[in-house]
Design a protein around this nucleic acid. Structure first.
Lengths: 214, 214
DNA sequence: AGGTCATGTGAGTGCTGCTTGCATCACGCC
DNA sequence: GGCGTGATGCAAGCAGCACTCACATGACCT
């Protein structure tokens, strides 16, 4: 557990980050409500009071987990989007898959980001990190609809919100651990891709225009 | 079991239901993680140990709240759908508004239903109640797409899942208390309605022009 | 070497919730 | 009506956590 472990001695060396990792582990195991500062300290091999040198309270630690989650999330989405290569539509689908993949594989971060009641305003950096993540999706959306004729181009923000909502809904309903309330006839990724295609087709983007128009 | 009086001396009379109501109140105030059996008992005016005569543990109480929530949810959705009157599309939009409305006004139930880590299989009745709620949406979807020509009719289950996901996503992201992470340029209800129209238009259901024209 | 400061310790406080053995009540049976 | 029995609620004890504070430690700087 000692990362760049120069300090086996009294000082931990990088306790702040170790606590964040401990919190991630605990959240992954017991959900966002099942972690405590004391247990995170225990997991980091440090006394129960030590965390308070780095975080004002439990919520601050949780907020840091969420913040780092948004950063990773933004990175992952940006990597998937890959600046629109090989073509915007394909890249956009990759973005969608990445969204669900994050909810699955980075389950603990996702929980801290979306399944807690953190007030973004109270934790500087959290809001910004969230904005950055959404910004990736929004920029991709803008690029995607850029080719549409002016008159038939819906507001990019609205489209981005629609897509985010659908992705988030699918993630929340079908990609969470033990939250698999319903047996799906298809993989969540396919469900999202199909939904995206139907939606985008209506805008004239996927598969040859709206169904009604031909 | 005497269901008449609220308090008949020593025995509470209907403690089980009183505890559920207390839990709803607490969840509404402090979120799904911020309730405890002890505090529910306090609110119901009994000692901390009493609830355990009626619920095996805190999770069982939470599950009962969720189950009742799904029942209410199903009722509310069915009322909004109103058997497809005055016409399926309009009724379907009412359904969508009802979904968001429930997330808003019955916030505590919604939290118990969707913002906890309950495993449906472990709580008999919960799964069934959830199925009933989804059944309303699914039946409405079937009715909605019934008019489409056979060859261009997508699987009703998939369509229902898409719509549920979008509604749930919008509810989770923009209708939850203090979860208003992002300032919306429009009401959540309008966002959902626009999304529905775009999606359904692609199936050949919602007439009119392309998305931006609303 | 000596001073200084960030960092972790360990004891401690107050609170909250869960558990359990016991008291009390409701009700059927004679 | 009296009584036994099971259901229901009580209260005290116990455990765990958030958070504080005075102090110890050792890293780093001069």
């Amino acid at each position: 557990m000692t990362w760049s472990g120069p300090r086996r001695g009294y000082h931990h060396g990088n306790l702040r980050e170790a606590l964040v990792q401990a919190a991630v582990t605990l959240i992954g195991q017991h959900g966002p409500a099942g972690f405590s500062v004391a247990e995170a300290a225990r997991l980091a091999g440090v006394s129960p009071g030590a965390p308070y040198r780095h975080f004002r309270d439990a919520e601050a630690l949780l907020a840091e987990v969420a913040r780092q989650g948004f950063e990773r999330f933004a990175d992952m989405l940006a990597r998937a989007w890959n600046d629109g290569a090989p073509d915007p539509l394909r890249a956009f689908e990759a973005l969608g898959r990445a969204y669900l993949g994050f909810a699955r594989t980075e389950s603990a971060y996702y929980a801290a980001m979306f399944e807690t009641r953190l007030v973004a305003e109270e934790h500087p950096g959290l809001q910004a990190a969230g904005d950055r993540a959404f910004g990736v999706l929004r920029a991709a959306t803008e690029r995607l609809i850029a080719g549409l004729p002016e008159g038939r181009r819906p507001p990019a923000l609205m489209v981005a919100l629609h897509i985010w909502s659908m992705a988030h809904g699918i993630a929340a309903l079908f990609c969470r651990p033990d939250r698999s309330r319903r047996k799906l006839p298809m993989a969540a990724e396919e469900l999202l891709e199909a939904g995206l295609l139907i939606y985008l087709q209506s805008l004239g983007l996927a598969g040859g225009g709206p169904a009604g128009s031909r």
